[in-house]
Computed example of a mutant assay.
Amino acid sequence: MKITFYSNFLNHHQLPFCIEMYKRLGKDFTFVATEMIPEERLKLGYEDMNDKYSFVLTTYQNQKNYEKALKLGVESDVVIIGSAPDEFIKDRIKQNKLTFRYSERIFKRGRYRIINPRVFISLIKNHTRYRKRNLYMLCASAYTAADFRLVGAYRKKTFKWGYFPEVLEYKVDELMEKKQHTVPKILWVGRLLSLKQPEDAIRVARMLKSSGYSFQMNIIGSGEKEYILKNLIRQYDLDGNINMLGTMTPEEVRGYMEESNIFIFTSDFNEGWGAVLNEAMNSGCAVVASHAIGSVPFLIRNRKNGLIYKNGDIKNLYNCVKDLIENPEWCNELGVEAYKTLKEMWNAECATDRLDRLINALLTEDKVEFTNGPCSEAELISHKYKY
């Protein structure tokens, strides 16, 4: 079976899945990169992987590669297309060949944008009109299915998917031993941007200190809000509690995750997936995450393998963190369950297995029904906090 995956550029969130596909299919798997990795990503520590792996075809290097990519769009048995031009699947859809779109949510800034005539017409043209075609949606956000349903697209054709960063294997007892500290360690990781709401972590730290709790908080990342955050730390007299550590490589971040007890993920609805959640759970952190983040409803079972709080509700966030500090055994239990979730289900190997079964079922008109995890049905989820 020949499978081709189109996207803008290869990154470490997609690499494990691509390696699994290549292991199974060899030269019959191709990742088509349609753009060079942006310089901004390279400065953040990303690696340029487009020229590193034999299964990558770069369309921007020469006309021959571009034409080969167009040909693969028609000849492949299955195509997965993410952030890449539709020209690669235009003829394929006409021929009604099995195709998966791979998308985060489309209304990150609010579903009210559906009333914009240009947005509405574009969605009808590129999605709704193909509702009877052999075209399906791999949802890289829990909110993707509901966004597309607003225009009647992909009804009963949406599947849970996401990003699959490398899942490291630990001896659980040894991993949890790294988290034994005299005071709990809290971690926040991300670009210091408005959508990430990093100031929420600092406000929670202020509340914890005011309530007399001992803790250490590390913030990893850089961005436009760095100056504001440093001022807040001084204003709230938190210099002894919070360390601003700047930008780090993915490997260095993992090291901090492995030693942290609690991971706070504070982004709003503009966070498409949020692969840092996969990494924190894989590292055995007890995660406290905003319900607005695309990966959260897929990965976290509230109070089973992490905690979900209402986006923007600082008191709710504070109470979750406080409960974990007061109950260190429960904190450890959530961390262990988080690790198991990634090790047993939300990883590239499991996702590839399930996608293979889904593809065969769709090609033969059989039924494969996963009750949860990758390739299970992506139900419609509203913005309302329901946990």
Rank of each mutant, 00 (worst) to 15 (best):
K23M: 11
D323K: 14
K196C: 06
P328W: 08
N11S: 13
V204E: 08
H13Q: 10
P117E: 06
A275E: 12
K384L: 09
A69C: 06
D237L: 09
G152N: 03
Y227R: 13
Y130V: 03
E271T: 07
E224M: 12
E174M: 09
H291T: 04
V296H: 14
I115F: 10
Q95I: 07
H291S: 08
L238T: 04
Q197K: 13
N332L: 05
W346H: 14
F215Y: 13
E369M: 00
G152C: 03
E279G: 09
E104N: 06
L232D: 09
H13M: 08
I93C: 03
N316Y: 13
R101L: 07
L44P: 06
S260N: 05
G255S: 13
Y66P: 04
A33S: 13
L10P: 05
L307A: 03
V336L: 09
I233Y: 02
L358N: 00
K310Y: 03
I19M: 12
K94A: 10
Y66M: 12
C350E: 12
T364R: 00
R111A: 00
N50L: 06
R303Q: 14
L317D: 11
N311H: 09
N311L: 01
S382T: 08
L193V: 13
S7M: 01
P165S: 11
E379L: 03
P297D: 02
Y309N: 11
G373S: 10
V189A: 04
L229P: 09
E271G: 05
S7K: 02
W273G: 02
L192A: 05
P250Y: 12
G255R: 13
Y66W: 14
Y236M: 02
E329G: 05
L42K: 15
D147A: 00
G335T: 03
K225N: 15
A153F: 01
E279K: 15
A153M: 02
G221L: 13
P16W: 08
L175I: 07
